[in-house]
Simulated assay, not measured.
Amino acid sequence: MNGYNQSPFANIPPVVKNLLIINIICFIPVLMFDKGPAGPNPISDNFGLFYFNSPNFKVWQIITYMFVHGGFAHIFFNMFALFSFGPIVEYSMGSKKFFNFYFICGIGAILFQMLIQAYEVHAITGAFTIDHPKLDESYLAFGQEQGSKLYGIYHSSIVGASGAIFGLLIAFGMLFPNMELMIMFIPVPIKAKYIIPVYVVVELFLGFQQFAGDSVAHFAHIGGAILGFIMVKIWRLQRPNNFY
């Protein structure tokens, strides 16, 4: 077989390839068993991540939440980013270091999100933990708006690889700052060192703004980005000399 007929997946390094495969496989039971907002959602409820004081929290969720996605668009954009940026970063770091990097960013992302949730719980209740109300209406003791926020923290799971993906994007931007990227709806290429910080700023804005109906864990994205930046600095990662 000549080079022109080679599969576009042939040169994907092992960690990225296996992450793509595992995420796609894990999405199948979500499609089969989770029913969305109407529920029940046995996959998301058992393997998505809940606040540490939630009755639904299980320790394994710190890892498994990265492999559960909430819909086709969610998994498509995360896997597209992993497929687009992951190989070059894995080749630069080496597979073992990339594996560690990906999971450190993913775990750090959710711990950062949980820290923000703890702050929000404390702001509402004066404590970081509460007794678990047996009835949904019990949260209304804190008022309609605050009670709804508290209920969401305790009864909504966080899913997706976005925290790890944001760490990956930061690593790519730091290792290859002058690489030009084509962005949807923007007709000209933009260097990574300009566009990736914009993504982070947007996530920071959305996290603080908290628009109604926005269920995205923006601070998990920020946490992944922070961990990605720290790891690149600590490991003193640099662009390989043979890259052009």
Score class of each variant (00 low, 15 high):
residue 7 S to H: 01
residue 9 F to C: 03
residue 9 F to A: 04
residue 10 A to H: 10
residue 10 A to P: 00
residue 14 P to R: 03
residue 14 P to I: 04
residue 16 V to M: 10
residue 17 K to F: 12
residue 18 N to P: 05
residue 23 N to C: 15
residue 26 C to R: 01
residue 29 P to V: 07
residue 33 F to Q: 01
residue 35 K to I: 00
residue 38 A to G: 02
residue 41 N to M: 07
residue 41 N to I: 00
residue 50 F to L: 00
residue 51 Y to L: 05
residue 54 S to I: 08
residue 58 K to H: 10
residue 65 Y to C: 11
residue 67 F to A: 05
residue 70 G to L: 08
residue 73 A to Y: 14
residue 77 F to Q: 02
residue 84 S to A: 05
residue 89 V to C: 03
residue 90 E to D: 04
residue 91 Y to Q: 00
residue 92 S to T: 12
residue 100 N to S: 13
residue 102 Y to F: 15
residue 106 G to R: 10
residue 107 I to S: 09
residue 110 I to E: 10
residue 112 F to M: 14
residue 114 M to H: 10
residue 123 A to V: 02
residue 129 T to E: 15
residue 137 E to Q: 13
residue 139 Y to K: 12
residue 141 A to E: 13
residue 142 F to P: 05
residue 144 Q to P: 02
residue 151 Y to L: 15
residue 169 L to R: 09
residue 173 G to P: 04
residue 179 M to C: 03
residue 180 E to F: 12
residue 181 L to R: 08
residue 182 M to I: 04
residue 188 V to H: 15
residue 191 K to G: 11
residue 192 A to D: 05
residue 198 V to W: 15
residue 209 Q to L: 14
residue 214 D to T: 04
residue 216 V to A: 06
residue 218 H to S: 03
residue 226 I to H: 09
residue 230 I to N: 04
residue 232 V to S: 06
residue 233 K to W: 12
residue 234 I to E: 01
residue 236 R to V: 03
residue 237 L to R: 07
residue 240 P to S: 10
residue 242 N to A: 06
